[in-house]
Design a protein around this nucleic acid. Structure first.
Lengths: 212, 212
DNA sequence: CTCTGATTTAAACGTGCGTTTAAATTAAAC
DNA sequence: GTTTAATTTAAACGCACGTTTAAATCAGAG
C-alpha cells in the first residue's frame, strides 16, 4: 500500500472502537491493524507497544474532554452557588462535544474510561490523576462545596459510586435502550440517558449520611 | 500425587480467588492448577472447559445467595410497607452469610459478579435471569412497590443505574479501599462499603422525576 | 537523478494459552 | 488377587498473541 501519513490516526480510530467494544486485553493488535488496514508492525513502529497505544487512545479523548469539563465547572461557579444537578449538568455539553470529534465519541469515551478503570489495575487512575489532576480537582471541589454536609471520605466513595453508574450505564446503553424501547415504547439517545442519570447521581451524592 | 476426591473443590477454591482478583480472561488454567496443587488437565477432566469452570464458580455462590436473598425480601414484606433502605439492607445478611461459606466470601462473590457482568458481554445477565429469574423479580417487585411514584420505565433505568454502581464498585473495591486508607486513613471492609452504598442507591432510585 | 531518512511490509520469533492424548496410577467391586 | 472404571499425570498439540527483524518502498532535499 502506498505511503499514508495518517497511519497513526487509522490505528487510533480502529483501536478506540475495538477497545471500547471488547476491552483492551480482548483486542489483539492483529484485529486492530486489519480493521485499520495497516501493517501489523506499524503499531510497534508508531507507538512502541500495545500498552502505549492504549494510553494514546485514552489521551486523545482526555485531552479534549478534561479542559472543557473543568472550564465548564469553573464558569458555572462564576455565578452563585450552583446546585449538584447544575454541576453534573455542566458536564453534558463537554461530553456531547466529543460527538463532533468522532461519531459516537461520547459513548466511546465513557466506555474506554470504564474499561480502563477496571482492567488496568489502578494504572489508569494514576494516569488520570497525574496528568489531569488540576482539571479533576476543579470538579471535585465544586461538588464538595455544593454538598458541604458530606465528609471528604464519604464524598470519595460517592464520587466513585457515581463513576461506576455512568461507566456501566454507558457501556450497556445499547442493550438498555433496546429493552426500554421494546418494553416501554420509549426511545432514548445517549443524551436522553445522560439526562436521566443526572438526578439519580445528584440525589445519591447529596443524601445525608446516616449513622445507624 | 495420591488420589484426592476433593480435586474439584480445590480447583473451584483456587479459581474463584484468582478470578475475583484478576478477572477471568487474565487468569490462566496453569495458574489456577498450580495454586490448587492439581494437574493442569484435571480442569478439563472435571469441568470440560474453562468456560464451564467459570460458570461453576459463579453458580456455587449464586445457588447460595439467590434463594436466601429473595427469601429475605419476601419475609420483609410480611411486615408493613418496607422502605427502599430496608429492602436494600435486607440483602446485607444474605451477602454476609457467604463469609461463613468461605473466608472473604462476600467480597469474592461481589467481585465475581462485577467481573462477570463486565467481561461476559451480556452472557452473565442472561445466565442469571434465566436461572434465577423468580428470585430476581421478587426483589424488583418489592422495590417498585416501595417507590410507587416512579413510573415503570424510569424504574427500569434506575435499577440498571443501581446495578452499575454495585458492579463497578465491587470490581474495583480492592483498589478503592486501598486509596481510602491511604488518603483518609479510613479502613473499610466489604461490609462497610456495602453499608455506604445502600443510602446512595436508595436515594437515587427514589428521587422524584423532574420534567425540566 | 541521487541520496537519505522515514515508513511500510512480509516473515519469523518466542511465549503462553486452552485443550487433548495416552499411559500410569488409584480406588472399588467381585 | 484380579478386574474394572475413575482419576491423575506428563507430554504434546495447535493456535493466537506481542514483538522483532531485515528488506522493500516511499518522500523530500540537494
Amino acid at each position: 500500500m502506498a505511503n499514508r501519513s495518517d497511519t497513526k490516526t487509522r490505528i487510533l480510530d480502529a483501536a478506540e472502537k475495538l477497545f471500547a467494544e471488547r476491552g483492551f486485553s480482548e483486542t489483539s493488535l492483529r484485529l486492530i491493524t486489519s480493521k485499520a488496514e495497516v501493517n501489523l508492525a506499524s503499531v510497534n513502529y508508531h507507538f512502541g507497544s500495545k500498552k502505549e497505544l492504549i494510553r494514546a487512545v485514552l489521551a486523545r479523548y482526555l485531552d479534549r474532554f478534561m479542559p472543557e469539563a473543568s472550564n465548564a465547572v469553573v464558569q458555572l461557579k462564576q455565578g452563585s452557588e450552583p446546585s449538584l444537578n447544575e454541576i453534573f449538568s455542566s458536564l453534558v455539553k463537554p461530553l456531547l462535544e466529543l460527538n463532533k470529534f468522532k461519531a459516537d465519541g461520547t459513548r466511546t469515551f465513557l466506555q474506554l474510561l470504564g474499561r480502563g478503570y477496571i482492567e488496568s489495575q489502578g494504572h489508569l487512575r494514576w494516569f488520570i490523576t497525574t496528568h489531569y489532576g488540576e482539571h479533576l480537582s476543579e470538579f471535585v471541589k465544586a461538588v464538595a462545596e455544593s454538598a458541604p454536609h458530606i465528609p471528604p471520605a464519604e464524598m470519595f466513595w460517592r464520587l466513585h459510586f457515581t463513576l461506576g453508574t455512568v461507566v456501566f450505564t454507558m457501556a450497556s446503553a445499547d442493550a438498555l435502550t433496546e429493552i426500554a424501547e421494546a418494553d416501554f415504547n420509549e426511545h432514548n439517545d445517549i443524551e436522553a440517558v445522560i439526562r436521566k442519570v443526572i438526578p439519580y447521581l445528584a440525589a445519591g451524592v447529596a443524601v445525608p449520611v446516616t449513622t445507624q
